[in-house]
Write a protein that binds this DNA or RNA. Structure first.
Lengths: 338, 338
DNA sequence: GTGAAAGCGCTAACAG
DNA sequence: CTGTTAGCGCTTTCAC
C-alpha cells in the first residue's frame, strides 16, 4: 500500500507538505505542488480513509436512512436516494445506506462511532421515534418529510398542504363541483406520515372556500381495492366528476376501471394525480399532475446537510412549492345530465 | 467523546482487555468482562470507526454500486439493495451506496482508500468496463449478473437461460404452438446486459426442441410502445396464443391492450411473466410467472462477499434455479379457429 | 513556503 | 487470563 510518507519521500518533501497539497489548506509553491502531484499519480496513491477520519475527525460520509416499507412507492424513494448519492459525491461525501429496520438504534451506532458526519432521514413520521435520539446526538441531521415538531431540526419536503389546495383549485376552475380523493393506503394514514394528512387538509380547506364537495377514500394500490373503492364512490356520489389520486400504484387501476365503467377521461371524468413526472407522462392517459420533486428534495437535503457539517447553517424548514402541469386527463366539467 | 482508554480506566483494566472484550478474540474472565461491559454502557462508549479501520485495516463497509438507469425497473434493484443492506448488517457490515454514474473510477476510489472492504456490483454488462479494474484491484468483489468472462470473479444471478426454457416448456405443455416474447427495452439489449439475451436464447433453444414458434419483440414499457408492438404481432402472426413478458413495466399495458383487443386471458391468450412476485400477484390478472428472486440474490451476494473478505471463499458462479408459479394468466391453448 | 513531531483511538503482537 | 506497547496513515499545531 502506498502511503503519504511514500509520496513525500518520492517527491523529496515532507509528509505535511503532501497533506497540504491534498487539502489545499496552505499555500504551496507551484513547483512543489507539481512534484507532489506527479509522485501521487506515479505511485498511484490513495489517501487512507480510516486514517483520515481518525486524524481529522471527519469521515466524509453521510448516512441515509431509507424506509423498508413496501407501501411507500419505492421508485420515488429510490430516485431520492440516488439523487442524494449523486449530490453528496459532488460535495465530496459518500453515502451510507441504513434501513429503517435497524430502527433508532442505527442513529446511535452510526453517529456515535463517527462513521458518518451527518444523517438524512427519509419517510419521517409525524411523531418519529428517531427524532429524540437525533436531537440529543447533536449531529447534523436533515429530514425529508415534516414531523409534528421541527425545533432543532432541518426539514425538506414538498408543500403538501399547498399541493392539495392546488388540486382543488384546478378542478374547481374547470367547473367541477364534486370530487373524490383516492388517497394512500390506510396504513400510511395510520402510521401518521404527515404528508398524506397535510394534502387532504390543504385540499379540503381550499375546497370549502371554493364550494367544492370532497369525498376522501384511502386506498391500496391494486385493482381489487381500487375496484371496490370506485364502485362505492359512484354509488354514494353519482355526481362526482373529478378525481385526485395520491397513490402512484393506484393510477393505472383507476384509469383502467374508469374505462370499464365507460367513463371517458377527461370528457366525463377529470383526473389529477400527485405523483412523479414519469408516472404522469407514461400513464395510459397523460395525466394532469402535481409532480413529486424527488431530485429537488434530494438536492436541498444534501445542501442543507453539508452546510450543517461545515457549520454554516442552522435549522431550517424548506418547503418546496408545488407545480401543477396540465396534461390530457383534466378538462371542463361535463354539463349536468339534465 | 468517550474512548476505549476511558472505558479501561473506569473498569480498572488495560486498553487491550477492553478491546478483546469487544472483539472476543481472546478469552476473558466472566468478572472482567462484566466490569468492562458495565463501564461501556455506563459511559455510553462507541468504538471509533476511523480508528478501528486504521488499526485493523478493515472498515466493515461493503460498497454497493447501483445502476442509475431508469430503464432497469427500479423496484427490483431497490429490493436487492435493501436486502443487501439488511443481510450485510447481520454480518456486521454497513453498506456504502455508489452510483454507476461515477463509473469505474469509483471502484478505484473506494477500494484504494480502504473505505470499503469489498464491492458488490449490480446491473453488470457482458463486457463491463469496471471489471478489469476490479480484477487488478484484488479486492473481494461479487457481481449480481453474469458478464461474458467470469474468471477471477464471483457472480450471482438468476439462471435466465433456464428461465427462458422454463417459460417455453410451460406454454408448449399447454398446447401452444406459436408464442411471442415481449422483451426488455431495446436499450437493454444494446447495452448487452446479458440476462435479456440469455433468456431469449434459452427460450429459443427449448422452443425449437419442442416445435414452438417464437417471435421476439423488444419493447419499451409504456402503453404507446406496447400498443404498437402488439398490433404488429397480431398482424404478422395472427395465430399467436401465448406471450412471455420480460419487462415489468410492460405487464399492465399488455393486459390492458389485450382486453381492448377482446382477447380473454387465459381463454384466448396465455401470458407468462418474468417479474417480481409482487408484480405477478398484484396485476389485473394474477400472472403465471417466473419470479425474480431479489432477496435470494442479495443473500447469496452478501454471503459470498463476506466469505471472501474473511478469506474463506474463492471465485464462484452462483446461478439460482428459476421457479415457475402457475396462476390465472395461463391455460390450455384454444382450439384452432376451424 | 516548508519541516518536524505530536497525537487521533484502536488493534495486535509480545510478554508475562 | 491480562497488561504493555508499538504502530496503523493522516492532520495539524508549532517552529523556522
Amino acid at each position: 500500500m502506498v502511503t503519504l510518507a511514500d509520496v513525500a519521500q518520492h517527491a523529496g518533501v515532507s509528509a505535511s507538505t503532501v497533506s497540504y497539497v491534498l487539502s489545499g489548506k496552505r499555500t504551496i509553491s507551484a513547483l512543489t505542488r507539481e512534484r507532489v502531484e506527479r509522485s501521487i499519480t506515479e505511485l498511484g496513491y490513495h489517501p487512507n480513509a480510516g486514517a483520515r477520519a481518525l486524524a481529522s475527525n471527519r469521515s466524509n460520509i453521510i448516512a441515509l436512512m431509507m424506509p423498508l416499507r413496501m407501501d411507500m412507492y419505492l421508485p420515488v424513494m429510490t430516485e431520492i436516494a440516488i439523487a442524494i448519492a449523486t449530490h453528496a459525491r459532488a460535495h465530496g461525501f459518500d453515502v451510507l445506506m441504513l434501513t429503517s429496520e435497524e430502527g433508532p438504534e442505527a442513529v446511535h451506532r452510526v453517529v456515535g462511532s463517527g462513521l458518518a458526519d451527518a444523517i438524512i432521514l427519509m419517510d419521517v413520521e409525524l411523531d418519529d421515534a428517531r427524532l429524540p435520539l437525533l436531537r440529543e446526538s447533536g449531529r447534523p441531521a436533515v429530514l425529508i418529510g415534516l414531523p409534528a415538531t421541527t425545533t432543532g431540526l432541518t426539514c425538506v419536503d414538498l408543500d403538501f398542504t399547498a399541493t392539495g389546495a392546488l388540486c382543488a383549485e384546478h378542478l374547481a376552475g374547470l367547473g367541477h363541483r364534486e370530487i373524490a380523493v383516492i388517497g394512500e393506503a390506510p396504513a400510511v394514514y395510520e402510521r401518521r406520515t404527515g404528508f398524506a394528512e397535510r394534502t387532504i387538509d390543504g385540499l379540503r380547506t381550499r375546497a370549502r372556500a371554493l364550494g367544492l364537495q370532497v369525498l376522501h377514500r384511502p386506498c391500496e394500490g391494486n385493482y381489487a381495492a381500487m375496484a371496490g373503492a370506485l364502485a362505492q364512490i359512484f354509488s354514494e356520489r353519482p355526481d362526482v366528476t373529478g378525481f385526485v389520486v395520491q397513490n402512484e400504484t393506484a393510477v393505472e387501476p383507476l384509469l383502467g376501471l374508469l374505462r370499464q365503467h365507460r367513463r371517458a377521461v377527461p370528457e366525463d371524468i377529470s383526473v389529477v394525480a400527485i405523483c412523479p413526472e414519469q408516472v404522469a407522462v407514461h400513464a395510459s392517459v397523460r395525466l394532469t399532475s402535481v409532480a413529486i420533486p424527488a431530485r429537488d428534495m434530494a438536492r436541498h437535503a444534501v445542501e442543507q446537510v453539508v452546510a450543517k457539517i461545515e457549520g454554516r447553517a442552522g435549522d431550517e424548514v424548506v418547503l418546496l412549492e408545488p407545480e401543477l402541469t396540465v396534461r390530457a386527463s383534466s378538462g371542463p366539467a361535463p354539463a349536468p345530465a339534465a
